[in-house]
Nucleic acid binder design. Sequence first.
DNA 1: TCAAGCTCCGTTAACGTACACGAATGTATG
DNA 2: CATACATTCGTGTACGTTAACGGAGCTTGA
Lengths: 353, 353
Amino acid sequence: MQSKPSIKDIAKRANVSIGTVDRVLHNRGQVSEATREKVQKVIEELNYEPNIIARSLASKQDFNIGILLPRSSSKNDYWYYPAVGIQKAAAEHQYVGLNLVEAYYDLNLVESFQDKISLLSEKDLDGVITAPIYKNELEDYINQLENSNIKYSLLDSDLEDSQRSFFVGQDPVQSGRVAAQLIDFTLQKDSPDILTLHFNPVTQGIPTINLREDGFSEYFNHADTEVKVSSHLILYTSKEELNSKLDQIFTDVQNLKAIFVPDSKSYLVAEYLENKTAKDVVLAGFDLLEENATYLRKGVIDFIINQQPITQGYQALNQLINSLIQKKEKIPSQNIPIDIITSENIKYYDGLD
Amino acid sequence: MQSKPSIKDIAKRANVSIGTVDRVLHNRGQVSEATREKVQKVIEELNYEPNIIARSLASKQDFNIGILLPRSSSKNDYWYYPAVGIQKAAAEHQYVGLNLVEAYYDLNLVESFQDKISLLSEKDLDGVITAPIYKNELEDYINQLENSNIKYSLLDSDLEDSQRSFFVGQDPVQSGRVAAQLIDFTLQKDSPDILTLHFNPVTQGIPTINLREDGFSEYFNHADTEVKVSSHLILYTSKEELNSKLDQIFTDVQNLKAIFVPDSKSYLVAEYLENKTAKDVVLAGFDLLEENATYLRKGVIDFIINQQPITQGYQALNQLINSLIQKKEKIPSQNIPIDIITSENIKYYDGLD
DNA sequence: TCAAGCTCCGTTAACGTACACGAATGTATG
DNA sequence: CATACATTCGTGTACGTTAACGGAGCTTGA
């Protein structure tokens, strides 16, 4: 019952000191090619793996990690949750000497985003966690990071051609298909109308929302059911404007059976529906924000697709630290499951994530 | 920027040696009441928390943990999965000196269960993970464990009056309600028939299955929809017998719209339905076993409720170790979310858990 | 030829905790 | 009063790793 070999074992086997073994392990030079090979061979023979416990005890290194995400103080805002997960992961790694440089910007102001970027640029960072929301503005910074060999991970949505070391997020097309399937389960064969309503200003150009809609349409194109799907972007500055726009849209459809909200604002539609007592319309949306959860419990919203935002934040920081610390689990990305939440199973998701 | 206080800091502040601090921390005696109080006060002042990294490095302790669960080598068996999670957790704790005493018994033989119990009784264990399947036979062993102050955690289903240190599992009543709700979404107002079919011999008396059925009925008792639910326990020794019993049941119902399988054997019904080409019946079951997954992808099974069996095993061992190691997260139980799986979202659950 | 500068490598002190050992007291017993 | 013994406490080593330090041996150039 021999336990795992330590660098001491390797040193003994290779007739060198532990210092030499350490230099070989970390490619720190100062070792002749001959002994390097000798030691390397023993390392492979004994199948040595470093004891990460001892490593983090001994290591004097500390890491500065920048967090470049939208600011949020409300549980009714999606970006509140990834931050929670990041804090959780940070707490678990308190012994590796972790230093978060938190740069939370205003989602509605590009200037705020740019300010935070220049703030982070000044710092000497080892890693960055961000999300590709302002794609163009982010691109320059990402190039900068790549030139300085600073690792960064992406949340929520991916950048195909980037060198990001890790991505956590949900497959948006597939999540749209799931929403479609759930609605499809409830439909009858009377050529129903379906509305797709979203509320995110196009200027932000978040591709996730569009991809969800793509998945949604794609599903019904190949489904048996014959449905009419019409899509509307609703921009408003007051409750009155919102209501009148919705009124307009609702009078235009004949046989409305379901509404799909591909962004996280389904509570807006729920609020409207609740007043109209149009309860027989199926409503499906995204994200377990506080108001969404309320309407889900009431039965106004029927389905919410959750993307485990807390877990996303948690994983992003976790993986970044692991790769910095060489504990590398080398998984390049993680697809978050497409959780289906109803009034009956919300109890064990809410908050728990 | 002061970092967390160590026992050295405490020793200095209290004018004692680190040895004394250590004795106070572990109630190891050999300390006069006066200095004990003095040290204790400093500990609380500085809000000292032990460095678990250093602890597990220094600790020579090793733990023997018994695993008393049904044996399984097939991915088509529920109990295959918790074992995977246990192995995963064990791998992560390789540095605390973990020694698993694995006692996997034959689910169909009480004798096998009893054999394994007597096997474990001989060992000097620090903890046990098991599941209350053979309740009566387990009771004696549990008493024995409690008398010897050996911690144990329960998987899958709880024992109310026990001293278990931890429970991981799903709320079975609520999961039955979720299945009912999903089926309800698909129903129309034509007073449909619903079948509940289960295949577990009563002799094993697993309460989980019955509680799921309770939840299922409860939902429809309070729902708007008027449905007729009839329940059948199907015992069979050959495929022919199974088919003829199902034939019998199916001819007896008028307006069959949905089938609920509260155990993990929904693939049996799916197989039957596939041959009968009775595709318009909604089928809902439990557990993402390999065959269930296959029929879910094909669209024969419509809904599977997953109970994250891998996570269950993982958490059970994790929490047990933490409580043994004094890292105690003192959460007495963990309710696993009631995951709803369809053909469209299975992709990111399967295997991943 | 010898100091200066390499390269290569061994030694050593941390990191924070656990625990054995033994020294310094105090107390009881003859 | 000497001895035995118990109580209380400090010291030292270990866990596996990191990384600074410095020594030995070699090469180089004046």
